[in-house]
Write a protein that binds this DNA or RNA. Structure first.
Lengths: 121, 121
DNA sequence: AGCTTAGTTCAATAAGTCTTGAACATCCGC
DNA sequence: GCGGATGTTCAAGACTTATTGAACTAAGCT
């Protein structure tokens, strides 16, 4: 039981760029980039961005393009950036995009939500 | 008589990435990146990539996203990369993408065609 | 076992993308 | 001014994308 991910050599630039050429998905990777002290995030944490159904869709797109890794953890899905794979294949691309993505307003919203949850714990 | 281009501060990352998330358009910017000794190329030179009509479409997309500049020269349209504008706004993004784009097979085809034309001159 | 939490699947819909051919406009050289 | 070269516009078609709600599965708690 694990989700299909492209091998590193099956990650193609047009697909990666198309996957990142969307506000919602750019926000997702912005969030991931700003929290990668811990091992990624769980889909639910992106809730402020859009509906649950739609998140499944966008996370699927990113996974199929090879931008993120999704690991099943019980009922949850732990999402992390495929930094190494991407940087090997397209050096600098992800990093330079992240530099902008981490400053998106929607990313702030998600991160504020995370802090609120942490405070409540 | 000149075509509409977005101001530098109206160039947005999702639009740029969406514009570059396509084989044909990635090939176009690959060609531009490999010939920017002279001042850009003319639409007709991209002919090996696809039909004339379709080129108008793709060049329009790149222009509207702020990736290229299109200057009218008589009946021709001279196309060039907006390197400076893009690099100011999203440092490293264009360069890192170009590094891959210049090696696309379709770019080779276009460049071989250019040499043949030059030889015939 | 029953309830809750987390996410998926499905079908539908609205909107956008890519591609094409036919007809058109515009400039340039002769 | 005519003819060729360069590109545009338009309408149509096939396809893809983004979004949604309802119904579902699967794991974890108590």
């Amino acid at each position: 039981m694990s989700l299909p991910h492209p091998d590193p050599d099956q990650i193609f630039l047009p697909n990666v760029l198309a996957a990142l050429g969307d506000e919602t998905r750019l926000a997702i990777i912005g969030c991931l980039a700003r929290t990668e002290a811990a091992e990624g995030l769980v889909c639910g944490q992106f809730a402020p961005l859009t509906s649950k159904t739609n998140l499944t869709y966008h996370v699927g797109k990113l996974r199929e393009a090879g931008v993120i890794n999704v690991r099943i953890e019980g009922t949850k899905r732990r999402v992390s950036l495929r930094r190494e794979d991407l940087d090997n294949r397209f050096p600098g691309v992800l990093d330079s995009i992240i530099a902008t993505a981490i400053n998106l307003p929607s990313v702030e919203t998600v991160l504020l939500d995370l802090e609120t949850q942490n405070a409540a714990t």
